[in-house]
Nucleic acid binder design. Structure first.
Lengths: 194, 194, 194, 194
DNA sequence: GATGAATGAGCTTTCATTCAT
DNA sequence: AATGAATGAAAGCTCATTCAT
């Protein structure tokens, strides 16, 4: 990676954190620049607008999450075990690098105006969605999961996990996310199994 | 209802539509006033700030959705059938009055800054959450649903439905929401049944 | 005129002066607002962008100049005398309300980017050009002026006068504009007479 | 010419084109550098500021136009014919190398702030003005042109031609510039002849 | 209750210029 | 000579909110 690429990524990470915790509109470009110790003008040498930056972040995040799931997909274990692994890693991320999951939930999902142009459909989240699709297709192929519409399964899996993280973020959950892993994995497996 | 209360509700409904379709920050108070043919100043006689208005909307929406679910709860049918009824009404709403569901997904879920003060936890959505809780407790009581942590069940149910509506809104779903009703009801029932 | 219309016109006049003397790009919206003792935001209630303001100014200026020439056109005097009257009034304006002529020369003529959209061709200066056209057509009709392409005559008349005012503005002219009136009127008449 | 002088001139020509077609303020130093395939920093090794560059361009342009007129001045033809030659070459330039005439009209004439310091009066356009002066003095000397204030004549000549090119640039002229040559030459001659 | 002109802080973005390499 | 990342002041514009009428 060149120096410029490194800086680019450091901007993405700083902006990701700020957008996630303070909201997209409440985070200003000067906020991001200041958190990096760089000037506003220079930040614009790397991303030509705030919206472009937001889109690059969702691509980046989707890629990172996708890679984590790919690692699970490559394990030689049952679909039931994979479900648990994925739930675990999702919650682990939500606890350790909450900015990524939060970005999905609080920035990407709810600022259509920003992502409409350039991130239509799943363009910017394909890195992540593709891996879920692979997980599901494998499970069906191996006879472990019921053969149903992919989106029925995808919505269940991701809506569920996202919902739980949201509830956690709202301080609604009485227990730690970790403690829900078994219940949730079981529920998902029961819903999807053949 | 007094005249004042009627006007209050008409403001809520106008703002609900605009916030849902154009986003919270992209909708200005003058936009709302204009859509109602009233003056900005007068609107402030009904709601003392934009944030307060946003909070009143979520309470209103939660109440309306809660009532719909209450009607299902009162039917003398199995939990399995209730699940289907709830999925149906949720999707029907998403199609006929999409602004309510969209408000949940795109405004309430992602503008913590706004709802933090006054809508902590489930304060502003209790109308809705309570009914889901009643549905679940009944099912457990009647031995139809497995006795698990309520939030495990709630996250599944609502995360799933919200996720599907989101996917629909992004034009990602290949079929109409209606056509997913059976699959989804089955998945939810499989996950929750005892 | 309503209060709002009066204020609108006072903004036009203030901006006209500042744009003319300091240049379009060197004059900021806050400059204009401050010179009027009003807020920036309020100025935008009257003109929705700096460019729109610039276009309204040229229309206004064209109208005012056009009215002055119309008065000459209505006099019952020879074309030769009309030429002199027009030169006189043009120079009088250049001395007493220099901002109008200067706006033509220094803002309108040289900021194509601004006027391209909405002031194509002579859309925004027709008030003025029309009167010159009437002057010329009358002169031809009465046999006093040679029948030639209108723009050949227009370019002569207006290019000449504009050029002189420009030279004056650059402090190049050794004498006052007034002292050129006879020479210039004669030159124009010689060029246009039949 | 040294290599450095060559590069200097290539910068002048590139900037001349961009300033003329896009406007002085809409053309950035990076734009100019990019159009030359050189770096911003290096451009500053040749001209220490944007304003200095603008002033060098007007001197250069004035010199080139002046040389063209000098060639006409040296011909052994009547003043009437010289007028026609000058109109022809002015319009030829306006068509073939429009950037020079446009620079006069759209950059030099209307950015006093820029040229005030260093190009007062006719300092930066003397190359051109001097030749017009020579043309005029010769004509007077030979008894072909009326002896009048030089600026009365200069304003006529140059205001007229500039005005026509401006009208052409605005797409207002119904015919090609060429087709106006005879009319315009005649008008100028009639105005100036003794 | 009703109006809408007025406020002004705050936003995103631009760009002439510098300077370490 | 040459590079181009970096600076930061300054611009145009927005909008929640107020208040005189």
């Amino acid at each position: 990676m060149t120096k410029k690429e490194l800086k680019r990524e450091s901007i993405i990470q700083a902006a990701l954190k700020l957008f996630s915790s303070n909201g997209f509109h409440k985070t200003t470009i000067p906020d991001i620049a200041k958190s990096l110790g760089m000037s506003v003008g220079n930040l614009y040498n790397y991303f030509k607008s705030k919206d472009v930056l937001a889109k690059e972040i969702i691509k980046y995040t989707s890629e990172v999450l996708g890679q984590e799931i790919r690692a699970v997909n490559m394990l030689d274990i049952s679909s039931k075990d994979k479900i648990k692994k994925i739930v675990e890693l999702y919650f682990k991320m939500a606890q350790e690098k909450p900015e990524m999951i939060e970005y999905f939930l609080r920035v990407y999902l709810s600022h259509r105006e920003v992502f409409n142009d350039g991130c239509e459909g799943m363009i910017c989240v394909s890195g992540f969605v593709t891996e879920i699709m692979i997980f599901f297709d494998n499970g069906v192929e191996r006879g472990e999961l019921r053969d149903q519409d992919f989106f029925s399964a995808f919505g269940l899996f991701m809506g569920y996990l996202g919902g739980m993280v949201f509830l956690k973020g709202e301080n609604i959950l009485p227990k730690e996310l970790n403690e829900y892993i078994d219940d949730i994995s079981e529920n998902i497996y029961n819903a999807l199994k053949s």
